[in-house]
Amino acid sequence: MAYLLILLLLVLLFLINIGYGSVDIPLNEIFSVLMGGEASKSAWTSIVINTRLPQTITALLAGAGLAIGGLQMQTLFRNPLAGPSILGISSGAGLGVALLLLVAGNIFGFSISGFGALGHMAVVVAAFSGAFLVLLLIVFFSRLLNDNSMLLIVGIMIGYAAASVIGVMKYYSPKEDVHAYVIWGLGSFSSVSWGQLGVFATVIILGLIFSCLLIKPLNILVLGENYAYNLGLNIKRTRLFLLLCTGVLTAVITAFCGPIAFLGLAVPHLTKGLFRTSDQKILVPTVILTGAVMALFCNFIARMPGFDTALPINVVTGIIGAPIVISVVLKRRRISA
């Protein structure tokens, strides 16, 4: 029942995201474009195919990927406040982008943002390199440390270290470069072109499939590491798989869309609240779907009329995500009291 509701919502929001925007396009025209036809105005075809469709698909996949990453980290660390960014991976991406934007501006004296598509590609590569480097670091530490909470602290520390390096660079950089960095930091689902979408979608879908294969280990981890070990779980391998899965998903999504806040943390809580279960066989697919729904919803809100140009996506996810996190914290307190 609830499954159907979420699927319905997903389809509905998918259509709304494509049908709705700053340019009014009649519904029948949109359908004919989606069916492979042409709209009566060629600009409409172009808007639907080249702008709205890739943006909608990007939002859907990014939401699903971040949400499942959040679920995996919350389960691995048995911490309700963990999210995909807890490992410092998005900070790593930020560091990569900051290095590119700010160093290019400072030392070589040109602005990356002026290079259009090529510039965007450079940002994606820089962000992914930064994120991947941090992921390698985390994997290295995970083999060194047996204690998950220590690993959590290392992840947060890497995040802090990256943030302070970024701070130093910002301090010494000209205004325009800092602005470009700030814009990247606000996140956007709109900068993935059809050309990039192939790579993006492939990685995310592989990550989602891999997540489904980790359902049983994730379920066992709910009991805590000691019980899980006794039940025959290979703890080290499971942890490595989970870190890699969340890590790669987060790295790719952050590289293409910027650091998207809150979705990864809030969606698992929202789903657990809706389905009242801790069974990962139910949670994994529903978290993926709910993540997609939430991202589409936020993307839709961000483009509501009245906001002349689209609002940055992080402004919206924060406003929706924060109340959810607060309500979860309050609810937890009630239970333990």
């Binding site: 294969l213 359902i215 049983k216 379920n219 066992i220 709910v222 009991l223 805590g224 000691n226 019980y227 039940l231 025959g232 779980l233 657990k272 009242r276 279960t277 801790s278 069974d279 066989k281 937890r332 239970i335």
Partner: peptide, 26 residues
């Protein structure tokens, strides 16, 4: 150690004891 997972029933916890015998998805 105490188990304090929300949304978990007695049946859920006990059934995890079958993990060594269940298949790929548990």
């Amino acid at each position: 150690e105490k188990l304090q997972t929300p949304n978990m029933t007695v049946f859920d916890v006990v059934s995890l004891g079958r993990v060594p015998y269940t298949g790929f998805f548990g």
